[in-house]
Amino acid sequence: MAVDHYTHLIDDLRVALVQLLQPVEYLATTPRLLYESYTEAQTDEAVLRRRLAAAEAENLLLRSKLLQMEDLKAENRRLRLLLDASGRLPVEKTDLMIATVLRYGSGPFENYAVINKGALDGIRPNSPVIDPAGIFGLVTETAALTSRVRLLTDPDLAIPVRIERTGQRAITQGLGHGRVLVRFLRKGADIQVGDLLVTSGLGNIYPPGYPVARISAIDFQRDAVFLRVIAQPVSQLYNNDEVLVLKIHHEDTPAND
């Protein structure tokens, strides 16, 4: 236990055990998968057509937004070059991979999800995982066909963030039970309930700009230097069937993006 707590010497043993548990996890999710395939088979054709039409309309809308984003990205790059900002972050190329959530950990110890993509699909530990709303978690262990994703509400996971409205930086740490603690915000900082926290990109693990959580409570504690700020994750933890794993390739030369 001490070796596991203080060092990384037995990380491989943990990966081997997770690998051993892979068939167990597949067996445990079989009833749910069977139920889902049954309900899918029972779905009316008219309902499916309606869903397809809605998905096509949404796709069109998103593509038009993407066109605008490409333009904004180019403008952003131009302005950055003009400013020649010394502290700018390395440019990253990101591949996305869709993964299905097989199950969530239901015990009281770690907040995690198991996804159906593993080392054979090119997933590596420390890959961020997102859902359509924002950051979902981080891949911690990869077996051959599955991976363990630590949710952002896990107490052992910290994410460097900035407040979108003011740009002030902080770090979120999981509190469990669908909440995160926002650390290192001094008293007198310009924050409000409802402020959105986005990834700051520091640490080179999470790409900048992804929504993380929304501030839900601010507690001015006496005799404390920092505020106690609680936030609610924006992603649908425990309700996601599909998530996206980001495969980031860091590049040294920012201008080549």
Binding site: M1, V3, L13, L17, L20, L21, V24, G105, F109, R148
Partner: peptide, 17 residues
Amino acid sequence: GLLYDALEGTLLGGHAL
């Protein structure tokens, strides 16, 4: 116990002990 440690995400050896 070790398998439960891996399943629950606890320190290796906790459940085993």
